[in-house]
């Protein structure tokens, strides 16, 4: 049982190492943007727009519900 667990752990560690080695290729990525945190500005903008859209959808949903109640009553 113990050795089985150890095996699992080793496999995990090895696969982690392999992924890290594979990800160390030199493809150009936006590393600077990540390092100085400017990426968070982009995330904040997108999150704001998305929340706004959802709030809009909820509002629309409520209006439709109100109309449905009126047309039934």
């Amino acid at each position: 049982m113990r050795s089985w667990k150890m095996n699992r752990l080793m496999t995990l560690l090895i696969s982690l190492l392999i992924t890290m080695a594979a990800s160390a290729q030199d493809a150009e990525m936006a590393d600077v943007m990540r390092a100085n945190g400017k990426i968070n500005v982009v995330v904040a903008v997108l999150a704001t727009i998305f929340i706004g859209l959802i709030v809009f959808l909820i509002y629309l949903d409520r209006r439709v519900k109100k109309l449905e109640k009126e047309s039934k009553g």
């Binding site: 493809a27 990525m29 982009v42 997108l46």
Partner: peptide
């Protein structure tokens, strides 16, 4: 649905991705 997409917007931009040529970010 809203929560899942919201999560994907944030994690989609912040989580690490494979470094591949041509595709890049």
């Amino acid at each position: 649905g809203a929560a899942l997409v919201f999560y994907s917007v944030i994690a989609g931009l912040l989580n690490p991705v494979p470094r591949l040529d041509i595709l890049n970010e």
